[in-house]
Write a protein that binds this DNA or RNA. Sequence first.
DNA 1: CGCCGAGTTGAACTGAATCAAGAAACGTGG
DNA 2: CCACGTTTCTTGATTCAGTTCAACTCGGCG
Lengths: 199, 199
Amino acid sequence: MDPINALKAYYQQLNPSMTEEDWHFFQSVQRVRRVKKGEMIVKPGEVCNHVSFVAEGLVRYFYFNEGKEITADFCPENCYTSEYCSFLTRRPTMDYLEALEDSILVEMDYEGMQSLYSRGALFERMGRLIAEGLFISLSTRNSTLMTKSPEDRYNEFFEAHPQMFQRVPLYMIASYLGITPETLSRIRKRLTEKAKQNS
Amino acid sequence: MDPINALKAYYQQLNPSMTEEDWHFFQSVQRVRRVKKGEMIVKPGEVCNHVSFVAEGLVRYFYFNEGKEITADFCPENCYTSEYCSFLTRRPTMDYLEALEDSILVEMDYEGMQSLYSRGALFERMGRLIAEGLFISLSTRNSTLMTKSPEDRYNEFFEAHPQMFQRVPLYMIASYLGITPETLSRIRKRLTEKAKQNS
DNA sequence: CGCCGAGTTGAACTGAATCAAGAAACGTGG
DNA sequence: CCACGTTTCTTGATTCAGTTCAACTCGGCG
């Protein structure tokens, strides 16, 4: 699908009352960008200056802690990615956004976003809904990490994103689940053994 | 200080371009509420229907996990508290908001908030800034819990909120830091011993 | 005075991390 | 299409930070 149309579909859902004129204005501050697998979209030390709609491909958000990389989020097609804290605060990030596949992004920079906001309530509302949505998903992830066991977290992730196992290496999923690759491997072994018994 | 004036000061800071007329409208959807120490402002099973400015006192946000209570947040005077996920999604919460001291809240219900939003861009922006702020603080807390050691988390908390140790029992701080009361006690012991050596 | 919740301390336990070694899968160039 | 090097994944042995469990102290308060 054309990346701009994918974006339009996304926004019509988020904001059903958007007129053609609004959309036109919205579109005027967007830029399409193609990135290769392995390319870093954002790197430590930079201020994240864009929010990027992933029209095609897959992006991950990760950082280093004590020499090990920790994956904080996966963003497949039809979702937004950004180091939003850095974007909002205009302070340098410590984190990476990396294309895990050749991807097509539709990007809006900080200035463009401000010009949307100054255009009126519709776009302010859009920004509010985005921030609220981010807050809700972060809360959910938080509570999962804090209260569930590694095995439960694995099962939850597997239910929600089975396709991810075809698209990203297990060690990235492990760090996303807050465990080491070794532990993930053992969880998976236990589960397949259980499955065998039941058959 | 008068609770309404405290709230006004808060909003003038958040939103310098607010006119007297805007403020008047804003105030018209607020209700002052006094709660006693130990009172539950929100309980599991309820939909959280308010965002509450704590004009005086102290509120904590907590939940139960495997029979143990986990403190997720402290909200002292001059900050906003709510089970905002439940408030936004209109779904029942699993969590508690509890007054840890006799407190004065200035509350706004869901309907009131919607009427603010429908009034225009200024209030939409306010809602956006609130959600963005919540997102940023949750991100920060998240990354602290994921990447720092218990001792570092303790030190960080102690630097940021030394007064809290006078206002809440240690076992609540322990669960806020993601550790047991026993572990907190040992950390504190280690630190005071270190302090002795240096003197 | 005696109770009770909060905090401390010690001993034993445990789940996951770490360390180390291989095996399997992957992709890149010949 | 195969060979080789690299990356990813698995498995086992060991370690360790923090939990659990249990006993005890302390301080406030009826």
